[in-house]
Amino acid sequence: MLINCVVYEGGEKLADIPVAGIGEHLQHTGRFVWVALQDATAAELAELQGAFGLHPLAVEDAQHGHQRPKVEEYDDSLFAVMHLLEIDGLDDGATGVGEIDAFVGRNYVVTVRNRSRHGFVEVRERCEREPELLRHGPGFVLYALMDAVVDRYFPVIDALEDELETIELQIFTKGAARESIRSLYGLKRRLTVLKHAVAPLLEGAGKLYGGRVPQICVGAQEYFRDVIDHLGRINASIDAMRDTIGTAISVNLSMVTIEDGEVTKRLAAWAAIFAVSTSLAGIWGMNFEQMPELHWRFGYYAALGLIAGLCGFLYYRFRRAGWI
C-alpha cells in the first residue's frame, strides 16, 4: 500500500506526486523523491524498481522480508534493513518483530514497512522542519529513519530492565524459584530478539561512518556517528542484562536445590521418628512365649511411654537442628 510519494528540492517539499510522475522529477538536479510503502505487493515493488532502477537482489530481499538487519551497497545506491520491535498491545509480554527496508539512491528514497502498526510520520515531519539538514538529500533521510528506529529500541530495553528488576525482587521469595526461572527464560528469549536487531545494525551502520563512506552519506557522517553511539549503548545494556540473567538463573537453581534439600530433611526427620516407634512396636509384636515383658502388668503402658518419649526426644532434637 502506498503511504505517500513526495518530491523535495533544496530541503523544501515541492509537492505530493503520483508514482507515474516520478520520472520527470528525477531528471532535475537537486531534487529527490521519497516514497513510503506499507506491506508492499510484488507489483508495487516492480513498478518502483522500474522507476528508480532498484537492484533486483535488494528488491528480492524486500519481497521476501524476514531479513537480517544490514546495510548493503549496490553501485551508487544503498539498501538497509532494520527491525521494528513492538511490545505494547501484545499478550504475555511478547515482542513483535516488524521490518523496514530502505532503498536509498542519489535522488530517491524508498521505504517499505512490513508487519508493523507504527508508521514514521514523525520522521517526515522532522525532516521537513529542518530544511538546512534535508539539503543533504537522501543520506540525511536514511539517518533520520535509522535514528527513529533506534530510538524505539530504548522503551523496549527499559521495559525489559523493569521486568528483570521485578524478577530479582522475588528471587528469594519462598516457593517462587521455579516461577522466577520460567520468567527469566522468557525474558532472555525477548532480550535475544532485541540483540538480533541491534548487533547486526551496529555492524552495518559502521559502514556509513569512518573509512570509505558511500557518496550518498557524505555530509551526514556525524549524524550516523550519533546513531552508532546509541546502538553501542543499547548493545552494552543488552550484554549486561544477559550476564545478570545468567547469574539470576544460577541463583534460582540454587534456591530450588536448597528448597528441595529442606523438604528432604523434613522427610528424613519424620522418617527417623516413625522408624523408632515402628521398630519398638515390631519388637514387642513378635509374641514369643518367653518374652519377659509379655506378661508384665504395666508392660503395655511402659512400651507406649518409651515410644512416646523417644519420639518426643527426636522431635525436639530435629526441631532445634532446623530439620522440622
Results as ranks from 00 to 15, higher is better:
321 A>G: 14
129 R>K: 13
225 R>D: 11
311 C>E: 14
303 A>D: 02
286 M>V: 10
67 Q>V: 01
14 L>Y: 05
229 D>Y: 11
55 H>F: 05
212 R>D: 15
112 V>K: 05
24 E>A: 13
141 V>G: 01
171 I>V: 14
64 H>C: 00
11 G>Y: 08
65 G>P: 01
198 V>A: 00
172 F>T: 03
37 L>E: 02
293 E>Q: 10
155 P>D: 10
82 M>G: 02
256 V>D: 05
9 E>P: 02
89 G>D: 06
130 E>H: 15
57 L>P: 00
200 P>Y: 04
320 R>H: 13
98 G>L: 13
44 E>D: 14
282 G>C: 13
306 L>T: 10
93 G>R: 01
302 A>R: 10
237 S>D: 12
211 G>L: 05
40 A>C: 04
97 V>R: 01
8 Y>A: 06
247 T>R: 12
182 R>N: 09
83 H>E: 13
261 G>W: 04
262 E>I: 05
75 D>N: 14
89 G>F: 07
297 R>K: 14
14 L>S: 06
88 D>L: 07
36 A>P: 00
128 E>V: 15
284 W>G: 03
263 V>L: 09
276 V>I: 12
74 Y>P: 00
291 M>G: 13
289 E>H: 12
160 L>M: 11
237 S>L: 14
228 I>K: 03
47 E>C: 11
114 N>W: 10
89 G>E: 11
30 G>W: 05
31 R>T: 09
254 S>M: 11
65 G>D: 06
85 L>Q: 08
122 E>G: 03
290 Q>F: 15
11 G>E: 06
31 R>K: 12
94 A>Q: 13
274 F>N: 14
106 R>W: 05
189 R>T: 12
3 I>G: 09
165 E>M: 04
145 L>F: 15
280 L>E: 05
